[in-house]
Design a protein around this nucleic acid. Structure first.
Lengths: 106, 106
DNA sequence: TTGACATGCAATAATTTTATTGCATGTTCG
DNA sequence: CGAACATGCAATAAAATTATTGCATGTCAA
């Protein structure tokens, strides 16, 4: 099985995963998909401890989307966010597994 | 199988992987372990395109070591670097696989 | 011992990332 | 229609990351 992904894409994904707030968003979005920006902000406040502004969350979501990790749609005035795990799997294929699976002691 | 890793450790690992220079260092160190700082600098110059200062490389190595990804030893005046992939595997266990393996369509 | 070598340490500069603020736009509901 | 709502856009501030420079320390080898 073969995946195609250039360095820039891979880089965007790794960068997207570098921030704990974004990883938390990914976690929550996986637990419950199709959340609005407001819902995501609410989660963030409820769990994260520190309350980020809506714009901060928006910027994090932008980075996730830029890395191709998000599927976004609109329902009226509401923006709906869900995960797209495919790029994550591709990144794992071409990088992570290379280091984690080769030469593993059984 | 159970792994123990706190949020800080996980965060250091993800941050360490966020930079392309560091990922390249990991790649090269995997191809050829037990390299000195100078060797790593030389590689970086030879391959990376942009020539970083020795100190820049040192700082990158520090971050990798801080994330527990490096095994360092001394031979006289020479510092020897090798990878320690165990933390990477642990990080994959508690985070990556959760998202990548669950709910995979077969 | 001395000079070249391999590296460390510390300060600072340059760049990027993260967060905030204020205002603007389109949508729903009464 | 008009008010509350959900979000966007843009500028800027704050903080963190990345890279550089200069000097210091310990080691090897002639």
């Amino acid at each position: 099985m073969f995946v195609a992904m250039n360095d820039d894409e891979l880089d965007r994904i790794f960068r997207a995963l570098a921030d704990p707030t974004r990883r938390k968003i990914i976690d929550r979005l996986r637990e419950q998909p199709d959340q609005s920006l407001f819902q995501i902000c609410a989660m963030s406040v409820a769990e994260g401890g520190k309350a980020l502004s809506r714009q901060a969350i928006t910027q994090h979501l932008d980075m996730l989307q830029n890395a191709g990790l998000l599927h976004v749609s609109w329902s009226g005035r509401t923006k709906i966010h869900s995960l797209d795990l495919k790029p994550l799997r591709e990144a794992a294929d071409i990088w992570f597994r290379k280091h984690l699976l080769e030469g593993e002691n059984p």
